[in-house]
Every structure is written in C-alpha cells, then in structure tokens.
Design a protein around this nucleic acid. Structure first.
Lengths: 98, 98
DNA sequence: TAAACTAGTTTATAATATAAACCAAATTAA
DNA sequence: TTAATTTGGTTTATATTATAAACTAGTTTA
C-alpha cells in the first residue's frame, strides 16, 4: 500500500467513514455524521478527500424537497481498506514477540 | 481509551515507535529513525509527544563521546498500545458483516 | 412573514507534520 | 592545525490538515 493512501486512511474520521461504507455499501451524509461523530464541516471535507482518492463515489440528488448526499464505497475503496488493515497487522504483531 | 490518547496513536510515526518499543523495550534515537522511516526532526518531536503523554521514558546519556538518546516504553505505553488495537478492531470487524 | 430547521459548503483558525536550518562536539583530511 | 565532514540530536519555519464557525440555499412551521 502506497504512502499517500496510508496517510489518507490514518485518520479516524475517514477510516470510520470507509469502514462503515464497507458494511452498508451506501450511506447518507447524515448517517456518516452519526457514525463518525464528526462535525458537518469535517465530514464534508473528508468525504471529498475520499472521493478524490477514488475510494468512494458520491451522488447528490433530492429526496423530496431536501438535498441528499449519498456515498458508496468503490472497489478500490474496498481493497484499500483491507490493505490498510493488513499493513496495520505488522505493527500489532510486535506484541506477540515481546 | 480516551480521545486524546487515540489521537496521539493515530499517527504512523508514533505508532511505529511505540510498536517497536513494545518488542525491544529500549531503543536509540538512531534505531527509531530506521524503524519509523521518518526524519530526525520528526522523530525528535514525536518522541517528545510520546514522552509527554507518559507512554515512553527517555534517558539521555553519553556513549563514548557521543550523546545517546534511549527510549523505553512505560507500562502505560504498553497498555495504551494494546487498547489502541482493541479499539481499531471495531473498525475492521465491519468487513465480516458485509 | 418571520423564525426555525434541513442539508449541506466554505472559510478562518488552530494544531500538526515535516523538512530545513541550526547547534555542539567529535572525527577525519589537507 | 585548521578546515571540512560526521554524529546525534534540537529548534524553527512552512505547508498541510482538522475543525468549528459562519455561511448558503432552500423548506417547513407558527
């Protein structure tokens, strides 16, 4: 996994978003606020970063009268998420060598 | 695990340092540069942060004619490191719920 | 029609990461 | 012997990032 990608995912808010999208495949802006416990402004920025990196796809539409932002994980997002945890393992396994 | 601590460990360089100290119990500044692949300035700052948080203990002495900075993980550091990975699990387990 | 709410985005500021510059002393080379 | 280089760091300047606050644009309610 490349450095850029690791840096992107080494952030609680982005990792929570991606982690959640891994399970549900699609979620609203509102839901992501709830899941990540971050502010709206923060979520807005982090969604954009994940989108720019191609890890999620964002679709904006209207639900009734209100705007609705829907986020979906991409296949790149899925493999990146998995790779990230594989790379984390190398930190953790030190524990067993104590 | 509290928010401050999580934030402190949600950083590749600091996590690598702590992770390594978990295995060896004591390491030099030089060794930590090698392990973390970060610059001297960066390591210097991150060591201070880990020390301020009480996760590592730093001892400065002379080895022959040269200064030598030795870092050692504290018991708080050990439990923090373990707790951090336990909390990460909650992100990762989403994968299985797909 | 004014107040409050929804669903966001933008922006200002504070915090952080990092490289670069620096320091003090030791070593080596000229 | 003195100038250049190396060691083992620290400090600082700058760029990046995170975040809250302010804002946008429209909707609903009273």
């Amino acid at each position: 996994m490349n450095k850029e990608l690791e840096k992107l995912l080494f952030n609680p808010v982005r990792l929570k978003i991606l982690s959640f999208l891994f399970t549900v495949d699609s979620a609203s802006f509102k839901k992501l606020i709830e899941v990540s416990e971050a502010t709206k402004g923060n979520i807005s920025v982090q969604i954009k970063k994940l989108e720019d990196a191609g890890l999620i796809k964002v679709r904006k539409k209207f639900e009734g009268n209100y705007p609705l932002t829907l986020c979906k994980i991409t296949s790149k997002g899925k493999t990146s998420f998995e790779l990230f945890f594989i790379s984390l393992k190398s930190y953790e396994t030190n524990k067993t060598e104590k």
